[in-house]
């Protein structure tokens, strides 16, 4: 089951990154934080998604070292 969860997490990574990117630009244009300032959020979101994927893969793999 968790393997499928990992596959889902991997598949939604792209769309969520795209959503974040769009939101940051929209925020920039509406006079909020400039994109050049808020871009690290992209890194954070990417890292969180990878981390979730890792945890899902580990949970699917009880023989793993975690």
């Amino acid at each position: 089951m968790s393997t499928r969860k990992a596959a889902l997490l991997r598949a939604i990574r792209g769309p969520i990154m795209l959503l974040t990117l769009g939101s940051l630009f929209a925020w920039d244009h509406s006079g909020g934080l400039a994109f050049t300032q808020s871009f690290p959020l992209l890194l954070i979101v990417y890292g969180v998604l990878k981390l979730l994927e890792r945890t899902a893969v580990s949970a699917a793999d009880p023989g793993g070292t975690e």
Binding site: P40, I44, G47, L49
Partner: peptide
């Protein structure tokens, strides 16, 4: 699976660092 997730944690840490710097 099972390995320490160094890459993601590094990314998150770098992102936080740059964000705090920019703010």
């Amino acid at each position: 699976a099972g390995r320490f997730p160094a890459g993601p944690i590094l990314l998150i840490a770098l992102g936080l660092l740059f964000l705090l710097h920019n703010l």
